[in-house]
Amino acid sequence: MPRTIDYGNLMHRAMRGLIRDVLLDVQDNGLPGQHHFFITFDTMHPDVEIADWLSDRYPDEMTIVMQHWYDNLDVGEDGFAVTLNFGDNPEPLYIPFDAIRTFVDPSVEFGLTFKTQDDDGEDDEDEIELEEVEVEDEAPREADIVSLDSFRK
């Protein structure tokens, strides 16, 4: 089989690196201005670390919000740890970057969506969609999406 450039996986790694860089900046300097994040992740990822009651309540995916209160943000090479408040109950979480399904900063209408597809029975491939997000009542709405599928053969 001839060698090809795997743009999909290269873009996947680059976008995960972008999320890491953003979180490193927040770790060092805090959230600037009105910036805040909605991060949806796969709770079944083998390296996710969350309390049992959270995994029972969110058996597939969970969305966290980093905005007014978060603590102990520690960004590593493969993921990040953060303590968030759930009903006045602080809970530590560890989320690998590979577990992230969406990363949205509605304050600047920026969002990334990572989807895994297994339509043709081959190995799962990650598809990355870049989206502009508008905010209504602090929740992301549907927006224009640019799919990387158009760059694949």
Rank of each mutant, 00 (worst) to 15 (best):
A81W: 03
K115N: 15
N85M: 09
G79N: 05
L93N: 06
F80E: 05
D56M: 14
E61T: 07
T113M: 13
D60G: 12
F80L: 09
G111K: 04
G76W: 04
M62V: 09
D98G: 13
P106V: 00
Q67L: 01
F80A: 03
I64Q: 00
F80H: 01
W69I: 00
L84G: 00
L93R: 00
N72Q: 06
P59C: 14
D60N: 14
N89E: 15
E91T: 06
T63F: 05
V82P: 02
Q117A: 15
G76L: 04
D105Y: 02
E91V: 10
D118G: 13
F114M: 13
T83N: 03
F97R: 11
V82Y: 00
I100R: 05
I95M: 07
D60C: 15
T116E: 15
E61S: 14
Y58N: 07
F80Q: 05
T63A: 13
T83Q: 09
D98H: 08
E77L: 05
K115A: 15
D120Y: 14
V82W: 00
D120S: 15
D98K: 11
F97M: 11
F114Q: 08
E109N: 13
L84E: 02
D78N: 13
Q67F: 02
W69Q: 05
F80K: 02
D98Y: 10
Y58D: 10
D119V: 13
D120Q: 14
Q67N: 04
T83S: 11
S107F: 04
F114K: 03
M62C: 11
N89F: 12
E61M: 08
L54G: 08
A81D: 06
V75F: 03
V108S: 12
P59D: 06
E61A: 12
A99Y: 03
E91Y: 04
D118C: 15
D118F: 14
A81Y: 03
I100S: 10
P59V: 09
T116I: 15
V65F: 06
D120A: 11
L112I: 14
E91N: 12
F86T: 06
D71C: 08
Y70I: 02
M62R: 03
H68E: 01
W69N: 07
D71K: 01
L93E: 02
V108E: 13
V75K: 05
M62A: 10
